[in-house]
Amino acid sequence: MKKFLGRTAAAALTLAFASEAMATEWNVSVWGKRRAFTEHVEKLAELVSEKTGGDFTLNISYGGLSKNRENLDGISIGAFEMAQFCAGYHRDKNRVVTVLELPFLGVANLAEEVAVSKAVYAHPAAAEEMEQWNAMLLMTSPMPQYNLVGTGDPRDTLADFDGMRVRATGGLGKAFEAVGGVPTSVTATEAYQAMESGVVDTVAFAQHAHLAFGTINQADWWTANLNPGTVNCPVVVNIDAYDMLSDEHRAALDSSVDEALDHYVANYGTLLEKWDSVLEEKGVAKVMIDDAVLAEFRAKAADPIRDAWIADMEGQGLPGQELYDLVVKTLADHRAAN
């Protein structure tokens, strides 16, 4: 009997160690606080845990693992297994995906943003560039077109943009620069303070960020239809960590991406439906830019910046024209299918 009990205990102990060995924990570096921008990461963690019976968990840290501008560096050295970053924070490190930040691409909604991002992420040039940072592009963080909040009188003409100090990164910053603006690329978490202290006159964000980072609370007005473009913020995983996953865990992660993005888009849609009531509640005027002003803005910003970007990429040995054409074709194909 003692022998039987001893063997049973040993077997139970062995099984416990085996179960522990099979469990996988990943650390995930994001920033700010939980908001619409991070809902796909939160949903991904939920789905992966469900599909693996809790054996694969994603521990999401809001700023505790890294600064937002350093997330890609953290991935490259294996400081954590997954992270979110925005291309405009370090354009030289993720040149390929900056095609998605070109102004006035004409992306109309979040579904189109997901489509064009998936197409670019799947391009060999994007994968190759990310491999330099030991990173694999997992999914995008689709955002609607950015718009400005500001104080004082609304800036609704190009003359008003001349000399305007604006928090805008990437292609958006280039767009405002083309019409005389003075862009600064302070991070999202620094935007409120920059606005409060007068470092910037205006801030360009998507709606969730104006709420999450408090810039809407200082605003007198918001441009409802400027829509100059958006930023691209990938979620990436460390390649070594991904390769070390069991087949079951890798399948759980891969199969959860589209579900997580669907959840994100639906959640963001709810926020957009409530946006007008948010403006009213906070006493922020909704400013509509005249069509002639928008046309003038596009003429000065869209074509010249696109052509300069393509030439710059081609000069660095990257397929700039091919990437831009891919975005245009993907948009057309997506619209034809829907």
Rank of each mutant, 00 (worst) to 15 (best):
R95K: 03
V97C: 09
V97Q: 05
V99W: 01
L100F: 04
F104G: 02
F104C: 15
L105F: 05
V107Q: 03
N109P: 06
L110Q: 03
A111H: 12
A111R: 14
A111Q: 05
A111I: 07
E112Q: 13
E112I: 07
E113N: 02
V114D: 09
V114N: 14
A115M: 05
A115V: 04
A115C: 01
V116E: 00
V116K: 03
S117G: 02
S117Y: 09
K118T: 07
K118F: 11
A119Y: 00
A119Q: 02
A119T: 07
V120H: 01
V120R: 04
V120T: 04
Y121T: 06
Y121H: 00
Y121P: 00
A122Y: 00
A122S: 02
A122G: 07
H123N: 04
P124C: 03
A125P: 01
A125L: 02
A125Y: 05
A125T: 00
A127I: 00
E128H: 09
E128R: 02
E129A: 05
E129Y: 03
E129S: 13
M130H: 04
M130F: 03
E131K: 15
W133P: 07
W133G: 06
W133E: 04
W133N: 06
N134Y: 00
M136V: 07
M136S: 10
M136Q: 00
L138M: 06
M139D: 06
M139Y: 00
T140G: 08
S141I: 08
S141H: 09
S141M: 08
P142C: 04
P142M: 10
M143A: 12
P144S: 13
P144A: 12
Q145G: 07
Q145I: 06
Y146T: 14
Y146F: 02
Y146M: 12
Y146C: 10
V149A: 08
G150S: 05
G150Q: 01
G150I: 15
T151C: 00
T151D: 05
T151E: 07
D153P: 07
D153R: 15
P154L: 00
P154Q: 05
R155E: 12
L158E: 09
D160W: 10
F161Y: 13
D162R: 11
D162C: 02
G163R: 14
M164K: 06
M164F: 11
R167F: 08
A168F: 12
T169A: 14
T169S: 15
G170L: 07
G171F: 12
G171I: 01
L172D: 15
L172H: 11
L172M: 07
L172V: 04
G173K: 02
G173E: 09
K174A: 15
A175F: 13
F176I: 10
F176S: 12
E177T: 03
E177P: 08
E177Y: 05
A178H: 13
V179C: 08
V179K: 11
G180Y: 13
G180E: 09
T184H: 13
T187W: 08
T189K: 14
E190R: 15
A191K: 15
Y192P: 07
A194Q: 12
A194W: 11
A194D: 08
E196C: 03
E196G: 11
S197W: 12
S197Y: 14
S197A: 08
G198H: 09
V199C: 06
V200I: 03
V200T: 10
V203M: 05
